[in-house]
Amino acid sequence: MTVVINPTGEVPATPVEPLPTTTVGRVRKGLTNPVASAIALVIGVAWTIPTAGLLVQSFRSKTGQDTKGWWTFSDLTLDNYRRVTSGTGNVLPYVVNSIAIVIPAAIIPIVVAALASYALVWIDFRGRDWIYVAIFALQVVPLQVAVVPLLRFVVNGAHLGSMTVIPKLGLAGTVGAVWLAHACFALPLAVFLMHNFMSEIPRDLLEAARLDGAGHGQIFRQIMLPLLRPALAAFGIFQFLWVWNDLFVGLVMSGSNNAISPITVKIAGLVGSTAGQGGEVVPAAAFLSIVIPLAVFIALQRFFVRGLLAGSVKG
């Protein structure tokens, strides 16, 4: 437990770390054996080959794909990529949709969660522990339960009987519907992460500011936000990957409207519709869809791992 829910995000070891030179390292080394090395090799290779296969296949012509395996590296061409980035088969508009969805979907919940956590950690009021536990427990709600009613709300507004509680927001048929859903669903985990990070900030800092006459709003803006930067980065990447890779919310909230469908919805549609012919472009389209999260992931893996170890509870 001490490791997984590790509030400071102090990672015992990031994936990129120097080789062991300590006694500890040598002792451990002594305990590993050839069997372990073999296991590592098999798993490492088995985990890499599928993605490599897709990359190679995406550069091969239809004839090549139809007659030989990708490992022959035959019939290489850029044609597939040309077809998925221009003309009728262009998937780039869907990449744009994904970007337009992911920006608000990552920023909104983290700011809202930071505000909520501030109250839950630094302001004394009755029932605050209960509110925190309740928000954490809301992770129990599967997207399947929440997404259809949320779509109805976006389309119709909220009503109690015939009384309109909240009018419709005009977000129906826009990417707003998709990111609003993501922003809501991300909150329990975001509050949990921010709460953990915030609890680690020394109380003296806050009390000194209070004595100087600063209000809570001011303290949040000027002291908390700068200190929370690592937490914001960790959750930002987490949420970016989650939203970019999501299919379910995108599928339901966009309601098959191509104008607002994220790239995952497009790729899933391509897989289904090109079973007969035209399937040769699918590897290229799929690779385009995974290259952005992959790049973000590789560049910012350190932050991501920190977020993962601080609260590996997203479901």
Binding site: P15, I43, G44, W47, T48, P50, T51, G53, L54, Q57, W70, L241, W244, N245, D246, L247, T264, I267, A268, V271, V282, P283, A286, S289, I290, P293, L294, V296, F297, I298, Q301
Partner: peptide, 19 residues
């Protein structure tokens, strides 16, 4: 190597494994 698929969507993984 093993962590990389974490960044890949299930949809992308479906294409990869379909192959």
């Amino acid at each position: 190597l093993v962590f990389l698929p974490t960044a890949i969507s299930f949809v992308g993984a479906a294409v990869i494994w379909g192959l």
